[in-house]
Nucleic acid binder design. Structure first.
Lengths: 230, 230
DNA sequence: TTAAAAATATGATATATGTCATATAAATGT
DNA sequence: ACATTTATATGACATATATCATATTTTTAA
């Protein structure tokens, strides 16, 4: 069992407020998991009695709509926590978490987190700030979905993926989403998403090579998206 | 200056966790305001440095989209707090708050709230839970905007207004939104909103009398709001 | 390797929704 | 009470996007 004290990822999460003692305590009660690409970490409606700390990899948080389609609400990557909202609300999780790449995550039981809440105000504050950040992001997404066209949303999402998760040596986006996933992130039909990607490609804004996407004209994409990076 | 200890509204907000001493302290530092219908409490981008407790009335939280249209992100009514997110994030507010009716609100400076956070864990927890609730609501709205039709969203919003804010003696919805506001809540053009209301009216689902809206067939509206696969 | 399944791509078409124009009704201010 | 502005309503039309069909490519598994 690896020690939380030495975990690089800890520095980037709310857990950075924990003291050495608390980290030792944490090491003792956490459980580490390896999750393969495509595997489910938890599913909408489940009772997850704790939180996951993402050590490596990326996952999508999805919500099933009444019409049967999944919508990707958020992507979560290393250094972030999963399941905080429902743990705090004392409810089943309202989203499913599915690995987009192989992942390493640690599970921390609720009792433990709650005891940190009690003892360590800075930690509470960090968690609160994270959730507040999520809320702001959700508000922004809402307005985008309500007011922007699919084309604008696609451009914006490509830029978001670029800015947030970076690119490979060949300049292609690091997070590799299927067309279907991309569509369910921007809230459109898969075919529409494919078509618009094709258009962007023909316009020279992006370059498509199989699943790989390279952003060629970032400024034009920004203009297209009315994108303002926070 | 009225005493927070005797404020009925307190019981319904996160503030219910405060002790008698804390409430006395709160009474001393709060400022009460009367806000007339249509007046702005705060505007997107402003630095609010505290939170508002809504004692009476309803307001809308709106966000301006790049295309110049407002989107109504949420309605806030008595017993709820305003501006918590940005206070905690230490950022300017990301939403504007505008009164939909005459309101009474109390402003509580940030320093005060922070001291309660430090001293009173139950209070922190309450605030956290509220924000988590907001986040869940935002996620739900996002998926609805992404996946449901305007008609479904209109039906759902009417039901939401009905369930959340109740109705007058004549059975009309208590919150009275203009067609424009209703449209910017469901994320559509004003004309589309008006047209669909007309349709609902002709179908006997609702009854329109001037600005007043009466829900006549709640069950049919519910069926309509939940997508049913054909 | 090969067959089967899934993902991507693109065309044809349907439809929901937005936009523009204009009429009427209601609200507002002088 | 009047004129002026603003909100509501409705028609005609444009267009973005969804849906359905089908081909092609890629991935998966046997």
């Amino acid at each position: 069992m690896s020690k939380c004290e030495q975990c690089i990822v800890r520095e980037f999460s709310s857990l950075k407020a924990l003291t050495k003692d608390e980290l030792l305590q944490l090491s003792d009660c956490k459980t580490s998991y390896t999750i393969k690409k495509g595997e489910v970490i938890f599913e909408e409606g489940e009772n997850v009695n704790g939180i996951y700390c993402v050590k490596d990899g990326i996952c999508k948080l999805t919500k099933l709509s009444p019409n049967g389609k999944d919508h990707i609400v958020k992507l979560v990557t290393k250094g972030e926590l999963l399941g905080q909202r429902s743990m705090i609300s004392d409810e089943p999780v309202n989203l499913s978490a599915v690995a987009l790449e192989d992942m390493e995550v640690c599970f921390i039981p609720k009792s433990e987190v709650m005891s940190f809440f009690d003892k360590n105000n800075q930690f509470s504050m960090n968690v609160m700030k994270t959730i507040c950040g999520d809320l702001k992001e959700a508000d922004d997404n809402m307005v985008n979905l309500a007011q922007k066209t699919v084309k604008e949303r696609l451009a914006e999402t490509l830029l978001y993926l670029h800015d947030t998760f970076g690119k490979n040596e060949d300049n292609s986006l690091k997070v590799q989403l299927s067309r279907d996933e991309l569509a369910s992130m921007i809230g459109t039909a898969t075919e529409s998403c494919i078509r618009l990607l094709s258009d962007f490609n023909k316009l020279g804004l992006i370059e498509l090579t199989g699943k790989k996407i390279v952003l060629k004209e970032i400024n034009k994409l920004k203009k297209m998206a009315d994108y303002d990076p926070k």
